[in-house]
């Protein structure tokens, strides 16, 4: 069903070198609209470098990026954002000292002209923020509540809602669940599901196989700067994914000694 659509973003043989270090040695990936594509890999596999090339933070050393069928080259994160690629970073989603409403519209403040001067339209911003938060299942005390009073999962949800509200077509989530508790993780995964159903392509980065299997449609595993293949939902078991991430052998021995609990 998904294959009837054209991929919204295609990354072809992306290479990224930092001096003598080869962080990415030819990674390919395509993402369909409305799919949740999980990018898995252990620490140092190149996940972060890869999504940073996708979101315009890094320029790839080699390789092509096609967005909606056209070749594209991003010079700044701003270029990727205006093209419709939004990234929600794990720690950098929100500014805790600022209110939810100010955070939600940061960089995209609605304006109201009074006497020839542009003012921040707080009334409109507050209304939209409250409505969007309600849709995501977060009950705010008020739009001026500081983000610092929200839980980690709620902050991720606000950041996701913000990206969706401002017209993201591709949403990149950088380990959104890695620092969260069980219940908060469930909330974020439910949010991902809701976003996907709107037809937005989600790239979900994680090293937790269970979180990936809970929402993912397809799974791509990165290891030491290379793609180890993409598999469809239902075609791969958690154990196989785990093995792929760790590169196979070492984890198999570990798993033996730990009684299969990794």
């Amino acid at each position: 069903m998904l294959n009837e659509h054209a991929p919204i973003i295609q990354m072809k043989n992306i290479e990224k070198h930092f001096g003598a270090v080869i962080a990415l040695a030819g990674v390919s990936l395509e993402v369909m609209p409305g799919e949740c594509h999980c990018l898995l890999g252990d620490n140092g596999a190149g996940k972060s470098t890869f999504i940073k090339t996708m979101s315009g933070v890094h320029k790839p050393t080699k390789g092509e990026i096609h967005f909606e069928g056209k070749p594209l080259s991003f010079n700044r994160p701003r270029d990727a954002i205006s093209a419709g690629i939004a990234t929600v970073y794990q720690d950098l989603a929100m500014i805790p000292l600022m209110s939810v409403s100010r955070n939600f519209f940061m960089g995209n403040e609605p304006l109201k002209r009074v006497g020839g001067i542009n003012f921040f339209d707080h009334k409109l911003a507050n209304e939209i923020t409250m409505a969007e938060m309600k849709k995501m299942g977060i009950n705010l005390r008020g739009p001026d509540q500081a983000v610092g009073t929200l839980s980690g999962g709620e902050r991720q949800t606000v950041a996701i809602a913000r990206a969706v509200h401002f017209g993201a077509k591709v949403l990149i989530l950088d380990e959104p669940t890695s620092a969260l508790g069980v219940r908060q993780t469930a909330n974020v995964l439910a949010t991902v599901d809701r976003v996907r159903k709107k037809g937005i392509a989600v790239v979900f980065i994680t090293h937790n196989v269970r979180h990936a299997l809970a929402v993912g449609d397809r799974f791509t595993v990165l290891n030491r700067g290379l793609t180890l293949g993409t598999s469809q939902r239902g075609m791969i078991t958690p154990e196989e994914l785990q093995d792929l991430m760790a590169g196979g052998q070492e984890l198999a021995t570990l798993e033996g000694s730990l009684g299969g609990t990794v």
Partner: peptide, 17 residues
């Protein structure tokens, strides 16, 4: 809002433009 954002977390502010 940009003044608050720049001082609150410059990196986050940059990422949102």
């Amino acid at each position: 809002n940009w003044i608050f954002a720049a001082g609150g977390d410059a990196q986050s502010a940059l990422y949102t433009g």
